[in-house]
Design a protein around this nucleic acid. Structure first.
Lengths: 233, 233
DNA sequence: CGATGTCTTGAGTCCCGTCAATGCACGTGG
DNA sequence: CCACGTGCATTGACGGGACTCAAGACATCG
């Protein structure tokens, strides 16, 4: 990996705060890798040998019960940090939801490097704290919200997080985006079945709150109504 | 706060890795404070002016929907770190479940201090990563487990986490402990109603898996059966 | 134009939530 | 000491929202 200085996610990713020479050193440790949709990068319970930055694409973190019920416990977008530093095993699987470009490091090498670069650890800490907040918000959704509220919350969350992805200069349309998840995956994320997801989406469409031009596209037609339905704090 | 060197949670808390002089400096910033059962230290959505270490007692983190449904999003035990550093507002409330002793810092002062002490930030990072793993495990519970499995999982989790609390030298009985939560709070943590919690506990008792000598005490009589019922990964 | 995979829709069931009554421990005061 | 009130917890009856099972619709691709 030659030129971190050219990296599209450079400013937002954990490596953002580094000095040019530090960035150069970190770049020596990493390599760019493309993963295809559906491919799993890290397996739940296995030794976690790598960490990475997401350069492009969307990935999921998932955990499952002994009998195979699966829960998606996180969604990763460009500039997000992947993997479990300072831990032997990964408690979750990491799988690409779309084709994705990663900037991969061996976990051991990354751990060593970050311990020597407080600025990197600081950014990692902030990111982890943010992720923890988001995860706790999701606990509220899973523990207390109805199927309807869950779908509404998801659509709003995806709208904002997909929007952050783009450059701040270009104005993207937050009210129109493509779902990186199929219905099954939405169910696994919201703690619902595929049928319930489908029914609730149909209901929102029938109510004129959203439109679904095709299976993957979502258009938010009445955002304030959607916000009411999401029952946010 | 004069003598951090005497602190009972010193080795396990975030301050553990500091040098004596650093510990002294941090000690100058903090003060010990007792909070009573039921008292709320930080309010959801309010400016988070303080962070703290838990010296003794148990606290809850909770979030709620606009119409008042409450979800407990975390439980804090002695040596755990409280609060949201590097963020204006706290996304959750922090409330004492038992009388508790805290070692409180102003958030601004703590933020400043930790930025100058990488070892402290490193320990905070590890702790946050662990907490994130636990929170994600809880997402699996809330999204995919049945009422029965949730109760079984909670009892096992409490058993281990209450056990860690004591000194490593003295051998505590993991199979017998006092619930720091009432039935309503168990419900708010597991995404169930008080009635369902009560019914499932009664069921486990009737099956001889646990005993409930009184409202707060739990005795695990058949741990391996309880582990099966918890449907862990 | 079938074959396939994904999504939608419908009918029936069940687990958990709701509502309501009862039980139990504790404290207070007559 | 007992009557009474209060706060939790337990138990029961009932209903509803999401799950299960099953069929049908739709798009894509050979």
């Amino acid at each position: 990996m030659k030129d971190c200085s050219q990296c599209v996610v450079r400013n937002r990713a954990v490596c953002g705060g580094l000095q040019p020479d530090e960035l150069e050193a970190l770049g020596q440790l990493g390599r760019k890798q493309r993963v295809l949709k559906g491919q799993t990068v890290v397996w739940e319970g296995e030794d976690a040998l790598v960490v990475a930055n997401v350069i492009d694409g969307v990935l999921k973190l998932s955990m499952s019960t002994a009998d195979g019920r699966e829960q998606i416990v996180g969604i990763l977008f460009p500039s997000d940090f992947i993997g479990r530093p300072f831990g032997q095993q990964s408690p979750y699987s990491i799988t690409a939801l779309t084709d994705a470009d990663l900037c991969i490091f061996s976990r051991a090498a990354f751990d060593r490097f970050s311990r020597q670069h407080p600025e990197l650890e600081h950014r990692l800490l902030r990111r982890t704290l943010d992720e923890l907040d988001r995860t706790r918000e999701w606990m509220l959704l899973l523990g207390k919200k109805t199927a309807n509220e869950r779908i509404a919350t998801l659509l709003l969350e995806l709208s904002t997080r997909m929007g952050e992805t783009g450059c701040s200069t270009e104005q993207v349309d937050l009210d129109r985006f493509e779902l990186p998840l199929d219905r099954q995956q939405i169910g696994d994320l919201l703690g619902l079945t595929i049928e319930t997801v489908s029914r609730q989406l149909s209901r929102l469409k029938a109510a004129g709150v959203i439109d679904l031009p095709d299976r993957r596209m979502v258009v938010i037609q009445d955002r304030s109504r959607l916000q009411d339905l999401a029952a946010a704090a």
